[in-house]
Amino acid sequence: MVDTLTLAIFGAAGKTGKQAVRQAVSRGHTVRAVEKSWPDTDDLPERVDRRTANVIEDDLAPAIDGCDAVISCIGLPLTAGTALSPPPLYTESTKRYLDAMERCGVSRIVVISASFVVTRDRGPMAFRAAATVALEPIFTQMGEMERLLRASAVDWTAVRPGWLMEGDATGDATVTPEVIAPDLIRTRHGDLAAFMLDCVEAGDWIHRTPAIGRKEAEEAESAARLLREIAL
Rank of each mutant, 00 (worst) to 15 (best):
T79H: 11
M125D: 11
V179G: 02
A61S: 09
D40W: 02
V25R: 09
L5D: 00
V2K: 06
W205C: 13
A126W: 02
G143R: 01
D3R: 10
A100G: 01
T119A: 04
R160K: 04
R51N: 06
Y97D: 13
S93K: 14
A80H: 11
H189E: 12
V200E: 02
A69W: 10
S107T: 08
G143M: 02
K18H: 06
E46F: 04
T94F: 00
I230G: 01
D3P: 12
P177E: 13
A220I: 09
C73E: 01
L192A: 04
F139W: 14
E102V: 03
I56D: 14
V25A: 05
W156R: 13
D155T: 04
V25D: 05
R96T: 02
V34W: 13
R51F: 13
V154C: 05
K15C: 07
R160P: 00
R188T: 13
Q19H: 08
I185W: 03
H207L: 07
Y97L: 11
T6P: 04
E219N: 10
T6A: 06
R122E: 03
R32D: 01
R228G: 13
I56S: 05
A80C: 06
P161N: 03
L89A: 11
R188N: 06
L60S: 00
G123S: 07
S37E: 10
E136F: 11
A12I: 12
A202G: 13
I230D: 02
L89M: 12
E35K: 15
A100T: 00
Q19K: 11
M165A: 15
R120I: 14
D204V: 09
A173K: 04
L7Q: 01
G81C: 12
E46L: 15
R208T: 15
F127A: 05
R47N: 12
T4V: 14
E136S: 15
L98K: 02
P177V: 12
L148M: 07
W163F: 10
S113D: 05
N54W: 08
S113Y: 02
V118C: 03
Q141E: 13
K215Q: 09
G203P: 11
V70N: 05
R186N: 15
R32K: 05
T41E: 15
G81A: 08
I56M: 08
R22G: 10
D42T: 05
G171A: 00
K36T: 12
M145R: 08
A69H: 05
A153H: 09
D43H: 14
A129I: 14
E221P: 08
D65C: 15
T82E: 13
L98C: 05
Y90W: 01
D65F: 04
M1H: 14
E102Q: 13
G66S: 04
R103T: 07
G213V: 04
R214N: 07
M142V: 00
I64Q: 13
M101Q: 10
A151G: 13
S26R: 09
S222N: 07
A100Q: 02
L44R: 09
R128V: 06
T4A: 10
A211P: 00
A53W: 08
I74P: 03
K18M: 14
A80N: 09
D198M: 11
L78F: 08
T174K: 15
I230P: 00
R128S: 04
I74Q: 07
I212T: 10
T119H: 05
D43K: 14
V25I: 10
L149A: 07
L164V: 01
E57C: 01
T170S: 14
